[in-house]
Design a protein around this nucleic acid. Structure first.
Lengths: 354, 354
DNA sequence: CGTTAGCACTCTGGCATGGAGAGTGCTAAC
DNA sequence: GTTAGCACTCTCCATGCCAGAGTGCTAACG
C-alpha cells in the first residue's frame, strides 16, 4: 500500500483543498460526476490521475465527497459544499461591472420604495440564474405616522394607515349611515394627535383614556380599536410576503429533470412557515447565511441551497434577500451577489431614514 | 361497408354526442386514451363495442377526437373539448354545499378588500384542484379620492393617493430641505381641492392653471405633476398583478410529468403580456370565457386551458378570476366554480359601492 | 340498412440482453 | 510518496422480443 489513508478530521492540506475545490468547481458547471482524469487535464494539478484518485478516496472517507456508484466520478456532499462555502465566504465579491449594472437598475425605480424588494429578487435571479427571493422590510413593531379616514359609501369608510416604516395599510370600517366626510376628517385629526409615532400597545392605552364627552368619542374609540387590531395583525403576521422571481431558472437545472423533484422544490417554496423562520434567524445576523441541502429541516428542501442576507436597520425595519437554487450552486457568485444587493438595499433604506 | 361514414359538419345526433361526452368524461378522470370497450362497459350505451368504434371513427373524421397511435384509444382534440364546453356552458353550476363553504370563507375576511382577489384565487385552486388565477379590480381610469403628504425625512415625503376604486398608491417625492409637515399638510389640502374625483387628464389641466402667486405654488405644481404621472402609470400598466395559487395542483397532472412541459406552462404563466391581454378581453364580456389549448396564441400555452370570468362594475373597477389547468380539465366544475366566485365578487364590490 | 362477432393487424411499454465507455481501486515498480 | 498498468464494476444505450390493448375491416345477421 502506497500511502496510509488518513481519516483526517483536521484541516485539509493544501493539495487536498485544491482538489476538493476543483471537484466542486467542475461539478457546479458540468453537473456530472467528475473523475480523476478530468481533474488533472483541466486543472493542471501537476500530479497523475492515480495520485488524485488516492486523494479523492481520502476526501470521500472524510465525508466531503461521494460516489453515485462504483465506477462513477465524485460529487460533493453537503459537507463538501459547506467546507467550500466556509473557505470562500469572506472573499466572495461581485465584479465591478455587474455592481454598476445593478446600481443603474435601482436608479431607474428610484423612489418607488415598495418595489425595491421585488427588483432585488429579480436582479438576483437574473445574475445568479437561480430563483431570487426577497421580503419587504418589516419593522419589529409598526409605528403609525399618520391616519386617514375616507368615506367610501354611506356605511363604509376606508381607514388608511401610513407607517413610519413606509408601509401602507388599508382596511374598511363600518360607519353610521349619514356620517359626513367632514366628521371623518375631524375624527382622523383627533386620532392623528393620539397615535402619531406610537405602536399598538401605546395606542391601545391612549384609546382607553378617551373622555366620553369628546364629540364623536364613540366613533373615535371604535376606529382607534380598529387601528390597534390592524397593527397587531401586522406585527404578528409572520413575514407575509416572500417574493420570488426566476423560478424558471431553477426549473432548468438538470437535477430537477424529473418533475416530482421539481414539485418538491415548489412545495418547499410554498412552505412559508420554514422560510419565514429562516428569515427570522437571518434577520438577526449581520451577514450572508448559507443553508445547504440537509441543513434545511424540511425534507422537501434537501436538494436545494439557500443563500440569504438581511438588509435594513436592526430594530427598525428588517428584510431579507437571497437565492434559492440546487445545492450544486455557484456559491461564490451567489454569495457575492446577495451580499452586494443587501448592501445596496441598506444604502437605500439609510437614505430613506437619513 | 356497413355504414357510410359521414363527415358531418352539422350538429351531432344524440348517440354521437353521448359517446363524445362519455369519451371526454372518461378521459378527464383517467388521463389515458379511452377505447371502445371501456365505453360500453362503463357508460351503459346499449350497443356493442364495434358500433361504438364506428362512431368513434366518425367523430375522429369530424376532428373532435384523435388517436395518439394506431392501436390506442381515443382522446379529445381541442375542438372536442370546445364542443363539450359549448354544450355544458349554460348549465354548469356549483353544488350548494360548496357555495355555502365559499361564502363562509369570504365572510371571514369581510373587510380586507385588498385580499379578496387572493382568496378568490386560492378558493378556486382548492376546489378545482388546478391553478387559481385572479387580478385585483382595476378601474378603466383611476379617479383620485384623496391625497396625502407625509414627511419621511428632511428631503423626502411620501405621497399617498387613495383612489375612488379603493386602491392605494404611494410614491416618494423630493422636498426642499426644511419644509415642515404643516406646509405639506396645507399643500395636500390645496391639492385635494384640485384633484378629488378627477382623473389624470383633468388633473393635468388643473395643475397647469395654478396661479404663480399661490403660496408654495411650486411645490403644489411639482407634486401635482407627480400625481398625474403616477396615475398615468397606473392606468397604462397592463394588469400588473396576476395572482396565482395552487400551481402545485397543476404540477401533479400526468401530462406535465416531463419537466420541460411543466416548464412551458410556467413560462406561460410568467407571460404576463398574453394573460393581461386575455384579462382585457374577458373583462369586456359578461360571463365565463374558456380558452382551450391552441385557441391560446402563445405556443407555450397549447397544452393548457383557461376558464376566466370578469367581476366588478363595467366602467368602474373590473377584475378577472379564473382557472388554469391542463386541457384535460373538469370543465363543468371549473366553469361552475369560476362563475360562482365571480358572482360572489360582484356582490362584494356592489356592497362596497352601494 | 344499421348492428355485431370475429379476426388480423399495429403500436406501445416493459423487460432482458449485450457491448461500449468511463472511472475506480489495487498492485507493483519507480 | 508517486505513478503506470490492469482487472473490475457500473451506467448507458441500442436492440430485440413479447404481452396487451385497441383498432379497422369483413362478413354475417335481423
Amino acid at each position: 500500500m502506497a500511502r496510509r489513508i488518513r481519516r483526517s478530521t483536521g484541516p485539509l492540506d493544501h493539495r487536498s483543498s485544491a482538489i476538493l475545490r476543483a471537484v466542486i468547481d467542475e461539478y457546479v458547471v458540468s453537473a456530472t460526476p467528475v473523475g480523476s482524469l478530468a481533474l488533472v487535464e483541466r486543472y493542471g494539478l501537476g500530479v497523475s490521475s492515480a495520485t488524485v484518485r488516492n486523494i479523492l478516496a481520502e476526501l470521500e472517507l472524510s465525508g466531503l465527497l461521494t460516489h453515485p456508484h462504483t465506477s462513477a466520478g465524485r460529487i460533493p456532499t453537503d459537507e463538501g459544499y459547506r467546507w467550500y462555502v466556509e473557505t470562500i465566504m469572506e472573499s466572495a465579491l461581485m465584479p465591478e461591472v455587474e455592481q454598476l449594472m445593478i446600481r443603474h437598475q435601482f436608479g431607474q425605480v428610484e423612489y418607488a420604495s415598495e418595489h425595491w424588494f421585488r427588483l432585488a429578487a429579480s436582479t438576483i435571479a437574473t445574475i445568479t440564474r437561480s430563483a431570487g427571493l426577497a421580503t419587504p422590510a418589516k419593522p419589529a413593531a409598526a409605528h403609525v405616522r399618520r391616519v386617514d379616514l375616507v368615506a367610501i359609501n354611506d356605511r363604509l369608510a376606508s381607514l388608511v394607515l401610513v407607517l413610519r416604516e413606509g408601509a401602507l395599510k388599508q382596511v374598511l370600517v363600518n360607519i353610521e349611515s349619514g356620517t359626513s366626510q367632514d366628521t371623518l376628517t375631524s375624527v382622523a385629526a383627533r386620532l392623528n394627535a393620539l397615535v402619531t409615532g406610537r405602536t399598538a400597545t401605546d395606542i391601545a392605552r391612549a384609546v382607553r383614556r378617551i373622555p366620553d364627552d369628546l364629540p364623536e368619542a364613540d366613533l373615535i374609540r371604535r376606529v382607534g380599536d380598529r387601528i390597534v387590531r390592524t397593527l397587531r395583525e401586522y406585527d404578528v403576521d409572520a413575514v407575509e410576503d416572500i417574493f420570488s422571481d426566476g423560478l424558471l431558472n431553477v426549473m432548468g437545472a438538470p437535477e430537477f429533470a424529473q418533475s416530482d423533484k421539481l414539485r418538491r422544490v415548489f412545495s418547499a417554496l410554498e412552505n412559508r412557515a420554514y422560510l419565514g423562520e429562516l428569515v427570522g434567524t437571518v434577520a438577526a445576523t449581520g451577514d450572508v447565511s448559507v443553508f445547504i441541502g440537509h441543513e434545511n429541516a424540511p425534507a422537501d428542501m434537501r436538494e436545494v441551497a439557500l443563500v440569504l442576507a438581511p438588509y435594513g436597520q436592526p430594530g427598525r425595519a428588517v428584510g431579507v434577500v437571497g437565492v434559492l437554487g440546487p445545492t450544486r450552486m455557484a456559491y461564490p457568485q451567489a454569495i457575492g451577489t446577495v451580499r452586494f444587493v443587501s448592501g445596496l438595499m441598506n444604502e437605500l433604506i439609510d437614505h430613506l431614514y437619513a
